[in-house]
Amino acid sequence: MTWVDIGALEDIPRRGARVLRTPQGCVAVFRTEDDRVFALDDRCPHRGGPLSEGIVHGDAVTCPLHGLVIGLTDGQAREAEAGGVATHPARIEGGRILIDASRLLPEQAA
């Protein structure tokens, strides 16, 4: 695990998301109504829509492009066989959001 501080919880509105830019692409960091945070790759498995711009409801987000619903806890589409996106461990500590960046850094040269 490589925990990185990416900002304050208050920087993300409740039931909203912000984008984290990484060498492996954009990650959507969500904050739920009850102040939990989740980090998912910001690309809908359907047509690559930015999940960070979707409407957040309960533990899910609805993609803004075509309405696919993705679970925040597992990154999986609620619809069967619609695929999913990678999730990244995230937690809150003292009002700061920490994300596990171990899979978000540049590939190490062998």
Partner: peptide, 11 residues
């Protein structure tokens, strides 16, 4: 703007 950017150095 993006919340943050992760780079190799930041980690």
């Amino acid at each position: 703007a993006p919340l943050a950017r992760i780079t190799a150095e930041a980690a």
